[in-house]
Design a protein around this nucleic acid. Structure first.
Lengths: 253, 253
DNA sequence: GGTTATATATCGCTC
DNA sequence: GAGCGATGTATAACC
């Protein structure tokens, strides 16, 4: 798992080590040491000298972690060019990207530890409880939203943006359903309102159009706003979320 | 920098190593090996056996990285309880969290390498080009948006959220300004429309209220929607983004 | 604690 | 390539 390791290297040795393993793309490349990081692109940042962990993945993504939080201090999702060099006696890693145009530079100001780790084989990843799954369940069982509901379409494109579920109720009125996998806020209410407006405009004033926000919960301000706009809320739950249920059974159900 | 290292440990040794350094909170703790990860909480997931890098920070945050992308395969922002144990002959790290209630479990299915890294001292972090900075600049120099504009308030709360800039134009009309640090899409248009509606409702029908979306750029569909709703777009640029300008001068300007 | 808004969001999908 | 929306978003700010 530990393919190669370099302890307290001088700048030239570190640059050589980095370039060697950046070429190979054999696995994860990391350096833990005192560093200074600059970023130029969508914004501009400077992380002053401190202790950081640099992580470079085989896909060319770069991230620099400090001692706190899930989010890296600096990062680069995918790099077009990635190389190390000694500049003014300091080893510098430069990560460039074209779209958008941005540059991340890591200056290794003190020796630390550099390693190449054999992390390559990715396992299958299964996720349950997404909005897409909720949509599929409700499309097949629309009575969970309301009795007599008939689903006409899913992800219906209206102007710009897609309506999660487009349906008709027992009385023949059109129903726009906006789904949220978690507690819905005012943004969801507005999204629903926008779709309802769009459909009303397209259908003309003759046809009645209802708007339903379907989610496990809704914030109090959102509910107020929802009712004020003549829209409705329906509580829907994910089916497989109870923790006591065996994971495999739930994931493969 | 490399405080402690364990190569190809058996489950008991790995569990002991993890618990020792989880107590100490001395720096970053990491394990690179074949693992299987389960998550139960806001959703439910299973990362099947593969090669991963586990990273635990002194603040108790946990992340598991695969060979691709900036985003971890699994993570836990802050943990209330964190401990390792041998279960059925396998070392398992369990990371719990109360709000929201979720559990991350990492099963180390094959020996690898465990390390404690001395990453503790965080450097100062400076960021330029945020929306907050743009707001400050425009609040002081509203003529960059429009001649004759007078800013009345910033981050004005109007029930449905906060208005970035609340102003009055040369003709005495109220102006709602929504800022975006990057290219604005339809979501920004909706946000602006929401605020304009709220202010019009509060002020009554007597007073004219304008809505301006101020951003470096706007997507074509968003611009169409904007004009359709009687709202306006004004191009504003960040001042310090040119890359040729020295970083320090820009950051400390 | 609850809610809202930002982010160098990242990521994946569709047009 | 551009735009749009979901994300176990994370994270900070404000009520």
């Amino acid at each position: 798992m530990l393919l190669d390791q370099l302890l307290n290297p001088d700048p030239a040795a570190l640059a050589a080590f980095l370039n060697l393993h950046l070429q190979g793309r054999t696995g994860l490349l990391q350096v833990a040491c005192e560093a200074e990081i600059t970023y130029h692109g969508r914004a501009m940042s400077l992380a002053q000298a401190g202790e950081y962990l640099l992580l470079v993945k085989p896909d060319g993504s770069v991230q620099v972690h400090g001692p706190r939080g899930v989010k890296p201090v600096n990062w680069q999702p995918g790099t077009d060019s990635l190389h190390a060099a000694v500049e003014d006696g300091v080893c510098v890693l430069t990560a460039r990207r074209s779209r958008p145009d941005e540059v991340l530079r890591v200056l290794f100001v003190a020796p630390g530890v550099a390693q190449a780790l054999g992390v390559r084989a990715e396992g299958e990843f299964l996720l349950d409880g997404t909005e897409a799954q909720l949509q599929e369940v409700l499309a097949r069982a629309p009575h969970l939203i309301e009795e007599g509901l008939t689903v006409l379409d899913r992800e219906l494109l209206v102007g710009v943006g897609g309506i999660d579920l487009y349906a008709r109720d027992a009385a023949g009125r059109y129903v726009i359903v906006e789904l949220k996998r978690g507690r819905a806020g005012q943004e969801a209410v507005h999204q629903l309102g926008r779709y309802v407006d769009a459909v009303r405009t397209q259908l003309g004033g003759q046809v009645a159009v209802r708007g339903i926000l379907a989610a496990p919960a809704v914030t109090a301000p959102a509910r107020t706003r929802l009712h004020g706009a003549g829209l409705e809320f329906v509580e829907v739950r994910h089916l497989h979320l109870p923790q006591d249920e065996p994971l495999q059974a739930a994931l493969f159900a």
